[in-house]
């Protein structure tokens, strides 16, 4: 269940951005997640629900964009969506990965910081 440490890393990145922008809260975190990573989407969503508690992203939504596994042959240039077979079916060369290993915080949405004198009125 390493999704919990992945969720904590996501929250650390979001919290650092929120602090830089003096934001009161993080409302949305958008993540790109490759299909060829050791992360299970549902487990990450569940871990995020737990890990966000008490953080600046306590009520944030996690949006996950799945990135499919794509490969290219360095020899004959054939591209494809490998079914975990990394040998070129045309020429037998080991394939390179074009996409599918992403694990990235893409963007976040922030709520403006409350200005104290406005809040107190």
């Amino acid at each position: 269940m390493h999704e919990l440490s992945i969720a904590e890393s996501i929250l650390d990145i979001a919290a650092a951005e929120a602090a830089t922008h003096h934001a009161a809260a993080v409302t949305t975190i958008k993540v790109r997640l490759g299909n060829f990573t050791g992360v299970v989407r549902e487990a990450l969503e569940f871990a995020f629900e737990i890990a966000r508690q008490g953080t600046v992203a306590a009520s944030a939504t996690l949006e996950i964009e799945s990135v499919p596994l794509r490969t290219r042959c360095p020899s004959c240039d054939m591209t494809g969506s490998s079914d975990f077979c990394f040998i070129c079916e045309r020429c037998g060369t080991p394939l390179d990965i074009l996409s599918g290993r992403e694990m990235q915080v893409e963007s976040i949405e922030l709520a403006e910081e409350e200005v104290p004198w406005i809040a107190s009125r």
Binding site: H21, V105, E106, I108, E109, E112
Partner: peptide, 9 residues
């Protein structure tokens, strides 16, 4: 505010 981050987790 929407902030672009693009940081590897």
């Amino acid at each position: 505010d929407r902030v672009s981050v693009v940081t590897d987790i």
